[in-house]
């Protein structure tokens, strides 16, 4: 995750990240299991099912990311797409950032 020049911040050490994942998993399990104790009032039947919120949230996000990904294939363009090559009045700022962007590209996203 981080560069090796300086000691790793405690938050990004692999051990911490593992602990965070474990903690998150416990919390996720807890909010689903809590439904055995807490009554969720469903308005339309389905939304009172056990774990509906969890499944619905997860599936919807999955769908939205996939739709975005697919639309991205059609809609994405290089960030200098609108720059006018004939004039200087294009995206001067973007042009500058593009240069720094190409330097950064080596590091990956």
């Amino acid at each position: 995750m981080a560069n090796q020049d300086e000691p790793l911040h405690w938050l990004v050490r692999p051990a911490t990240i593992r602990k965070l994942w474990i903690g998150l998993s416990i919390v996720l399990a807890a909010v689903v299991l809590a439904q055995t104790v807490v009554y969720i009032k469903g308005y339309f039947g389905v939304d009172a099912w056990f774990g509906f919120g969890a499944v619905y949230g997860f599936v919807c996000c999955m769908l939205m990311v996939l739709v975005a990904k697919l639309l991205g294939l059609v809609l994405k363009r290089p960030q200098d797409y609108y720059d006018d090559p004939d004039k200087d009045t294009g995206h001067g700022q973007d042009a500058g950032q593009k240069m720094s962007g190409t330097e950064e590209r080596g590091n990956g996203a």
Partner: peptide, 9 residues
């Protein structure tokens, strides 16, 4: 609880 399920997942 419903919102916590929704958001955390």
């Amino acid at each position: 609880l419903f919102y916590l399920q929704l958001l955390l997942f």
